[in-house]
């Protein structure tokens, strides 16, 4: 089931937009395979393997994993109003706070969207770029400049 790509037709758009499915990328799903047999009560860091790399630095008021994760069923997330969310609709957790970005994302303005400008598009989800636990971007290294023949004289400030 998780290998099938779901087609999500958003009513405001005429074209079909396919949203990146988290379950196609995530490893170790379903979570309850491990968390069903044992319930790890601690919510402070560092976590056990395989989550030892996770550091929570999203917003200073959020210091508890169970703000987004469902304590009783680790296969799903939860909203502030208590509603449960599947991992494939994980963006619904983000849009609780990021409303303006949600409007832009739904229009295809925010984030990356590939495919066809006149037809079907493939839209990347929030977490394909933004790591939900630590969303601050690290510094990037750019591709090198093309090797223009005039580059050496231009760098020195020559004509």
């Amino acid at each position: 089931m998780k290998y099938l790509l779901l087609f999500l037709i958003i009513p405001s758009l005429y074209a079909q937009v396919e949203i990146e499915q988290r379950l196609d990328i995530i490893k170790g799903f379903p979570c309850m395979k491990c968390h069903g047999s044992f319930v790890n009560k601690k919510s402070h860091f560092p976590l056990n393997t395989p989550h030892e790399n996770i550091k929570l630095n999203h917003y200073k008021e959020i210091n508890n994993c169970y703000f987004c994760h469902d304590r009783d069923n680790r296969n799903q997330l939860k909203l502030i109003n208590g509603k449960k969310i599947a991992f494939n609709q994980g963006y619904k957790v983000c849009i609780q706070c990021h409303g303006e970005k949600n409007r832009d994302w739904k229009l295809g303005i925010h984030g990356k969207q590939v495919g066809s400008w006149s037809g079907k598009k493939y839209r990347y989800s929030c977490i394909s770029c933004h790591e939900p636990h630590k969303p601050q971007f690290s510094k990037w290294i750019a591709d090198p400049l093309p090797k223009y023949p005039w580059i050496d004289s231009a760098r020195k400030g020559g004509h």
Partner: peptide, 24 residues
């Protein structure tokens, strides 16, 4: 583009990303 900064399309189509950018 790794950040999705670029948007392209038909400006005459009101539902395209570029027309929405002009709007918002």
């Amino acid at each position: 583009c790794p950040t999705g900064a670029r948007k392209f399309g038909n400006i005459l189509d009101p539902k395209s990303e570029v027309a929405q950018i002009f709007k918002h």
